[in-house]
């Protein structure tokens, strides 16, 4: 296992000076994932925070080949690149193996890009898809996505006098991906670098599609002090609000079990998107979230324990 020093010594594929917000979790995810690749990488990115903040012409923060073409088609664009690589490999025209990595936010992955992602997964292209999941459309001003958690307040699911934020739970995308099936799909977090790096290393070893759903804190979207980004992401896993697990060859393995499972309230209370829950009237909603988190956590643990090939 590489130490943080080892990883840092590899240099950064992303140069400083990009325009991502102070405290943004995305660069951490990008650097950790790309540095886990033993081979050179080429990167495709969906329209979104990472894209707009890293590539404002005439500057580019990318030290690796990087491409953006549109919002909903990142997996399809990656599939095209991977097919070109295959074609060149067949001709013996490629000097070395190149890994294709796609980055999309939860908007570009859970929602508008899901069809293209599903198609690319089913066809079995050899690429690593990374969803930097900050649980809403942050680039366009914090609108709800299907990754937005229950009762979260966003600009299109605002907590109002009648409706307390988003009324639907988030989609279980990692399992949807696993059900294609793919050999490797995992939930990771920017708050747990070792777990993320290990999963990225595994993903790059897969001869086919691999998927990483990486929890990524967002300062303007969740609204907490910017120096607390890593802590926020850690809290999400320590409360089991964002469980860390992997699905390898159809078997679920929980990769992080907090020594002390903290109440979900500790995670929620530090963010403005859940502020409206902390009133006497909405007290019951926090309990509902806790119940849902507990149920999900128990479900994952039992899947893990069963050892069954569930996907």
């Amino acid at each position: 296992m590489a130490t943080l020093k080892d990883i840092a010594a590899k240099g950064s594929p992303l140069a400083g000076g990009h325009r991502m917000c102070a405290g943004c979790g995305i660069p951490i995810v990008v650097k950790l994932v790309l540095n886990a690749s033993p081979e050179p990488v080429v990167v495709v990115t969906a329209t979104g925070c990472l894209e707009v903040a890293s590539s404002i012409f005439p500057y580019s923060a990318w030290r690796v080949p990087w491409m953006h073409s549109a919002f909903e088609n990142t997996a399809a664009t990656a599939a095209g690149i991977e097919s070109a690589i295959r074609a060149l490999e067949k001709k013996g025209a490629l000097a070395q193996r190149i890994n294709v990595v796609a980055f999309g936010g939860d908007g570009g992955t859970y929602d508008i890009g899901l069809q293209a992602l599903s198609g690319a997964l089913e066809r079995g292209h050899r690429f690593v898809y990374v969803c930097y999941n900050n649980e809403a459309y942050m680039n366009t001003g914090i609108q709800r996505s299907s990754a937005t958690p229950l009762f979260s307040s966003t600009t299109t699911s605002p907590a109002g006098r009648v409706i307390p934020g988003k009324m639907q739970p988030r989609k279980r995308l990692t399992e949807i991906v696993a059900a294609h099936p793919v050999k490797y799909a995992a939930q990771a977090s920017m708050g747990n670098w070792k777990d993320l790096y290990t999963k990225a290393e595994k993903a790059f070893r897969i001869d086919g599609p691999a998927f990483l759903n990486v929890y990524t804190s967002c300062v303007p979207g969740w609204n907490y002090p910017e120096h607390e980004s890593v802590e926020m992401a850690r809290l999400a896993s320590d409360t089991c609000f964002w469980p860390l697990y992997e699905i390898e060859d159809g078997r679920v393995r929980v990769t992080y079990k907090p020594r002390e499972k903290k109440p979900v309230e500790e995670f929620l209370k530090r963010q403005r998107r859940f502020r409206h829950l902390f009133t006497e009237a909405n007290r019951g909603l926090i309990n509902k979230i806790q119940e849902a988190v507990d149920e999900e956590w128990e479900r994952l643990l039992s899947l893990d324990k069963s050892g069954l090939k569930v996907f």
Partner: peptide
């Protein structure tokens, strides 16, 4: 590449052609 839509067809073509 037998894609799942024409949008992806053109997207995959674009990705491949950049190479």
């Amino acid at each position: 590449v037998t894609v799942e839509s024409e949008h992806s067809a053109m997207s995959a073509c674009i990705g491949a052609a950049t190479c």
